[in-house]
Amino acid sequence: MSKRKIFYVEDDETLGFLTADSLENQYDVARFTNGKTAFEAFCKNTYDLCILDVMLPDMDGFEIATEIRKRNQEIPILFLSAKTMKEDRIKGLKLGADDYLVKPYSMEELLLKIEIFLNRSVKTSTSNATLYKIGAFEFDPNNYCVTKDSQTTNLTDREAALLKLFLDNKNTVLKREKILLELWGTDDYFMGRSLDVFISRLRKIFKEEPNIRIENIPRVGFKLVVE
């Protein structure tokens, strides 16, 4: 069985070598040190997951992620960055990233994140092509999109996974811990803040539909209400 392909961009030669060397035991790693060169390669090849540094020469990680999402809504994107400000993390997630790890990071944690994202992608691609009806909306989890009146909104892999989890448990309270463990494999504080960003995105999709809403359940979690 061929190895899954990782698109890895890091301009620190030592860190890039050590990380790629660790990943190559399990994955086929394509490593780049220049943002522009890396993105040109992304456009010509097929990868299963992206790992991006933020501060890169010629084209930074945020710019690369933005361009990737214009072309591919499904591929998982993971930022590894020395930029520790909350605003930088939230910006990365809003651009469509699935996670944001701060340097120095644990190799064990990185490998766990990669496995979670890749396993979820496999489950989605091999699941039955079930379409969900939500009021006037139709959600296609295999193609990561929500459609209403011929207007389609594309979702990222993480947004689609979150919406599917809500729909599989509609009108039922989901604890924050359960959602975080299902989607990120951890329930730490920052992942909780990340979850709020993704829920805000889903709310915008359904904001004009009064019979569909995601309710906050204080100190417990959330509930997708479909009337």
Score class of each variant (00 low, 15 high):
Lys103Leu: 11
Phe39Glu: 05
Leu95Met: 11
Tyr100Thr: 08
Ala30Trp: 08
Leu56Val: 11
Ile116Ser: 07
Met55Asn: 15
Asp98Arg: 05
Ala82Cys: 08
Tyr47Asn: 04
Lys44Pro: 00
Ser81Gln: 09
Asp53Thr: 02
Thr19Ala: 11
Asp48Arg: 02
Ile77Glu: 07
Arg69Trp: 00
Glu10Trp: 02
Leu93Lys: 00
Thr37Asn: 08
Met55His: 13
Ile68Lys: 04
Leu93Cys: 02
Phe17Tyr: 15
Leu110Lys: 04
Asp60Met: 09
Ile6Val: 15
Asp60Gln: 10
Lys113Glu: 02
Thr19Asn: 04
Thr14Pro: 01
Leu49Arg: 00
Tyr105Gly: 00
Tyr8Lys: 00
Glu24Phe: 03
Asp11Trp: 10
Met85Arg: 09
Glu115Phe: 06
Lys3Phe: 07
Pro104Asn: 12
Leu118Tyr: 07
Ile68Trp: 01
Thr46Pro: 00
Lys103Cys: 11
Ala20Val: 05
Ile75Gly: 05
Phe17Met: 14
Thr33Asn: 12
Ile75Trp: 06
Phe17His: 10
Glu13Trp: 08
Glu67Ala: 14
Tyr8Asp: 00
Thr19Pro: 01
Leu112Cys: 08
Glu10Lys: 04
Phe42Tyr: 15
Leu110Met: 06
Glu74Leu: 10
Arg31Lys: 14
Gly61Leu: 07
Ala20Arg: 15
Glu10His: 02
Thr46Gly: 00
Glu87Met: 12
Val29Met: 02
Lys91Val: 09
Lys91Gly: 13
Glu63Cys: 07
Val9Leu: 01
Asp98Pro: 00
Thr46Ala: 05
